[in-house]
């Protein structure tokens, strides 16, 4: 059970890091001070992931096309392993995502959460809300002469 909770937490932050804008992630990481020493288990590599859709939205899958992804893995001096899997071709984005993934597994997690993940998550939520608000303003309000529920 503890493992499941750990995985769920890690799932959340890796998703936030993958979807963050590289420049915003870089700015948040810079606020943490000097980057901890690390060595590569797998240096950043750019590749493609095949995306899939489902027939009718819910049926059998089909191949939709690929998306660029950059991945890497690194190890901190204390042995913690961090993975980065991010959309796009920005190697620094993948490296910093892996670094934060590693730091979030150690003692600095609260500090990293506050300086990196919380602001990135808030910004993503803000951007989502902003788009949803613009969409809501274009929702059609049909005029009806007699309303059924009145």
């Amino acid at each position: 059970m503890a493992k499941d909770a750990e995985n769920a937490a890690r799932r959340r932050w890796m998703g936030v890091l993958a979807k963050a804008r590289p420049d915003r992630l870089a700015a948040c990481v810079a606020a943490l001070g000097p980057e901890p020493a690390h060595h590569w288990l797998r240096p950043p590599e750019v590749g493609a992931v095949m995306l899939r859709g489902r027939m009718g939205g819910t049926g059998a899958p089909f191949n939709l096309g690929e998306m660029t992804v950059t991945r890497c893995a690194l190890r901190l001096a204390d042995g913690t392993v961090g993975h980065g899997h991010v959309q796009g071709r920005d190697r620094q984005h993948a490296r910093q995502a892996a670094l934060i993934d590693a730091l979030m597994q150690g003692a600095r997690a609260p500090e990293v959460e506050a300086a990196v993940l919380a602001p990135l998550e808030a910004e993503a939520a803000g951007a989502r809300r902003n788009r949803a608000a613009k969409a809501a303003a274009t929702k059609v309000e049909f005029f009806t002469m007699v309303r059924g529920e009145d």
Partner: peptide, 23 residues
Amino acid sequence: YRTTLPRFGAAYPVDTGAMACDR
């Protein structure tokens, strides 16, 4: 360009029912 990229695998099918709709 696409042909030069290694394929890392396939994603889960996208859940369009959970789409954040602009339209």
